[in-house]
Design a protein around this nucleic acid. Structure first.
Length: 568
DNA sequence: TGCGGCTATTG
DNA sequence: CACAATAGCCGCAG
C-alpha cells in the first residue's frame, strides 16, 4: 500500500544506524545491523518522500542498494532558494530560521581550555544557531543524535515549504515547489550515476587512443621516447638551431613567426586557416590532437576512471555553476566524439539515446510567454518559421536567436536582431529585463525558482578592470542564466521522470548531457523503455510548463542503439 | 603551492 | 569564438 504523500524524515550514519520519523508521527531508530533492512521495507511498503539533509544520505541509500523513488533534499533546496554553492547544515539552518548567516559560529579551537570532551550535547545554541560541532558532522555518531537530526530536518522542511510559496521568492508559482522536488530527485540521480557509471568497452577505447598516440607504452622511458618522436614530427619543420617548447603557446607563436606565419594566438581555428601556408601548421594541428588525447583522454584516463566492471565513473553535481546545470568530472561531459564508439551497451542490452531539439529557444518561448515564438515551436525546426517571419535565411535567424540569448551585440546576427525585436517583442523584452537587472547587480530568479546571485564570486566582473565591459559581461551572464537555467530545470524534470518511468523496464540512466539522455535497457524491453522516455518528456513539459503561458512543444530525437556513436 | 592565461573538448 | 562546463600545462608571484 503506497501513500504517495507521506513524508519520512531520515538520518543515517554507516556503522551507527538510522533514525526516521513520519510527518506528524513517532520517531523510530535502528542500529546499523538492522537499519538498512528497515529502511528498505519502508521504501517498498510506503514509498515515502524521504526528507534528508543532503545527498550524502542518498548516497548511503544507493551504496546499500536502496533506490528511493522520491526525496526532499534540504541542501539542494537551500541552494535553489539562496543561490550560489555555499551550503552545509549551519547555513541551511540559519536560512530556515531567519538567522543572520554572518552570525554562524566558528568552532572553538581545541586547546587546554576547550577539550572535545568538555562539550555539551545541545544541537542548538542559545542564539539559535546550530552548534559548530554538530554542523561539522561530528554529532551523527549515536542514535540519539540521529533522532535530533530528523527533528531538525522536519523544522527546516516546514520553513522551506513556506519560503517556496512566499511572494519573496519572486512570483509565487507552483513551479517552484515542483522544481524543488525534481531538483532533489536529480541529486539522487547523481548518486546513482556515480555508483553505476557509464559502460565503456576498454579494448575499443584503447584502439581509438592508439590511433592518435600509438600503443600503450610499457615503461616511462618508452613513453618519453614516443613523446619525443611526436615532438620531432613538428620540430623537423623548424629551424634546426633553435629550441621550442610546443607546450608553451608563446614559443609556438615565435616558432610560427620564424617560418613566416604571423598570428595573434595559436588556437586551432586560426591555425586551420593557415594549413596551406606552411607544412608545420598541419603538423602542429596533428600534434595538438595527439597531445590532447595523451594528456587528458589517454591510457591514464582509462586507468584512473574505468573500473574492473567496464564502467567509467566520475562525480556528479545536480546544480552547478551560473544556472544550475548538472556537471560531471572524469571527462563525462566533454569526451571527444572520437571516443563515442567505445561507449557500448553491455551484453543483452541496448542504449536509448534521446536528445532534446532546440531546447533553449523553446524554453525561452515558454518562460517569456511569447505567443509568436511559441507558435514557431510547433514546427520541428523552429528556426524556419522564425526565418520566414524575419524574411532572412534560416542560418541568419538561428544565429540571431542564439545571439539574443547569449547577449551578442555585433556580427552576423546583429542586423537580424532588430527583426527579432519587432517579431518577438515579448521574448526579447524578457531577455532585456534580465540583462538590465543583472547589469545593475540585482539577483535574478529562474522560472523554476533558482536564485542567480549577481553579488558574490561566481558572477563575472572581478578580473576585468574596465567597468563598462564588466557591466556588459554581467548582463550577458544574467540574460543567459535565465534561459540556460530554466532549460536545466526542464531537463532535470525529464531526467528524473525518465528514471522513474523506465525503472519497470529495467532501464538505467547512464549519462545526462544537458539536453541528452543515455539510458541502458535490456534488449527485449528496449522499445517499451524508449516509449517511456518519450512520454516522460510530455509529462515533464506538462509539469514544468508555466500554466498561464502558451503551451510550447518540446521534441526528443529518440533512438535505440548499441553504441553511442550509432545515433545521428 | 596557488592562480591566471592559453588551449581543447563538450552542450 | 557570444553562454556554460572540466581539465591539462605553463609561467609567475608568494
Amino acid at each position: 500500500m503506497s501513500r504517495a504523500g507521506a513524508i519520512v524524515a531520515v538520518a543515517v550514519t554507516p556503522g551507527v544506524g538510522a533514525a526516521w520519523m513520519p510527518d506528524g508521527g513517532e520517531v523510530s531508530t535502528a542500529g546499523w545491523d538492522d537499519a538498512i533492512n528497515r529502511l528498505r521495507e519502508i521504501e517498498e511498503d510506503v514509498g515515502p518522500r524521504w526528507l534528508w539533509w543532503s545527498g550524502d544520505i542518498g548516497r548511503t541509500f544507493v551504496a546499500n542498494d536502496i533506490r528511493p523513488a522520491r526525496c526532499w533534499d534540504l541542501e539542494v533546496i537551500h541552494r535553489l532558494l539562496v543561490g550560489g554553492w555555499r551550503a552545509g547544515p549551519a547555513r541551511i539552518w540559519a536560512e530556515a530560521e531567519g538567522l543572520d548567516p554572518d552570525g554562524i559560529p566558528e568552532r572553538a579551537p581545541v586547546d587546554l581550555f576547550h577539550q572535545p570532551s568538555d562539550r555539551d550535547d545541545e544541537a542548538l545554541r542559545e542564539d539559535g544557531h546550530l552548534d559548530p560541532e554538530w554542523a561539522a558532522g561530528e554529532r551523527a555518531d549515536t542514535l540519539a543524535h540521529l533522532v535530533v537530526w530528523v527533528e531538525l530536518a522536519t523544522r527546516v522542511y516546514g520553513a522551506q515549504i513556506d519560503r517556496l510559496a512566499a511572494p519573496e521568492t519572486g512570483s509565487p508559482s507552483p513551479a517552484h515547489a515542483a522544481t524543488a522536488r525534481s531538483e532533489s530527485a536529480a541529486e539522487l540521480l547523481c548518486a546513482e550515476l556515480e555508483s553505476d557509471g557509464l559502460p565503456i568497452d576498454v579494448p575499443t577505447a584503447e584502439s581509438v587512443i592508439a590511433g592518435f598516440v600509438g600503443r600503450r607504452p610499457t615503461d616511462a622511458s618508452e613513453a618519453a621516447r614516443i613523446e619525443r618522436e611526436r615532438d620531432d614530427l613538428v620540430l623537423r619543420h623548424a629551424p634546426t638551431d633553435s629550441e621550442f617548447d610546443l607546450r608553451n603557446p608563446g614559443q609556438v607563436k615565435s616558432l610560427l613567426r620564424r617560418v613566416g606565419v604571423e598570428l595573434p594566438d595559436t588556437r586551432a581555428w586560426r591555425l586551420e586557416a593557415e594549413r596551406d601556408t606552411h607544412p608545420i601548421v598541419d603538423a602542429l594541428l596533428t600534434w595538438r590532437k595527439a597531445e590532447r588525447i595523451s594528456t587528458t583522454f589517454g591510457y591514464g584516463w582509462i586507468d584512473e576512471h574505468v573500473g574492473a566492471d567496464g564502467r567509467l565513473r566520475g562525480s556528479w553535481t545536480a546544480s552547478d555553476g551560473a544556472a544550475g546545470r548538472m556537471t560531471a568530472t572524469a571527462g563525462l561531459h566533454n569526451m571527444p566524439a572520437d571516443l563515442r564508439p567505445a561507449i557500448v551497451a553491455e551484453p543483452g542490452h541496448v542504449f536509448i539515446r534521446a536528445d532534446l531539439g532546440q531546447i533553449e529557444p523553446r524554453v525561452l518561448a515558454a518562460v517569456s510567454g511569447d505567443e509568436a515564438l511559441a507558435r514557431a515551436c510547433l514546427d520541428d525546426d523552429m528556426y524556419q518559421p522564425v526565418a520566414d517571419r524575419l524574411r532572412v535565411e534560416r542560418e541568419i535567424a538561428k544565429v540571431a536567436v542564439l545571439g539574443a540569448m547569449y547577449g551578442q551585440t555585433t556580427g552576423k546576427g546583429a542586423e537580424a536582431l532588430a527583426g527579432l525585436e519587432r517579431g518577438y517583442p515579448v521574448a526579447m523584452g524578457y531577455l532585456r529585463a534580465a540583462a538590465e537587472a543583472a547589469q545593475g547587480g540585482n539577483d535574478l530568479r529562474t522560472f523554476g525558482g533558482r536564485r542567480v546571485r549577481m553579488s558574490g564570486s561566481i558572477a563575472p566582473g572581478s578580473s576585468d578592470r574596465d567597468g563598462r565591459s564588466r557591466a556588459a559581461a554581467r548582463g550577458r551572464y544574467g540574460r543567459n542564466a535565465m534561459v540556460q537555467g530554466a532549460a536545466a530545470e526542464l531537463f532535470k524534470t525529464w531526467a528524473v521522470l525518465t528514471r522513474a518511468r523506465t525503472a519497470e523496464f529495467s532501464g538505467q540512466i547512464v549519462l545526462c548531457l544537458h539536453d541528452e539522455l543515455l539510458v541502458q535497457a535490456p534488449l527485449d524491453r528496449a522499445d517499451a523503455a524508449a516509449r517511456a522516455v518519450d512520454s516522460a518528456l510530455d509529462e515533464a513539459a506538462h509539469r514544468w510548463a508555466p500554466p498561464d503561458h502558451p503551451r510550447v512543444r518540446f521534441l526528443s530525437d529518440t533512438s535505440v542503439i548499441a553504441r553511442w556513436s550509432d545515433a545521428k
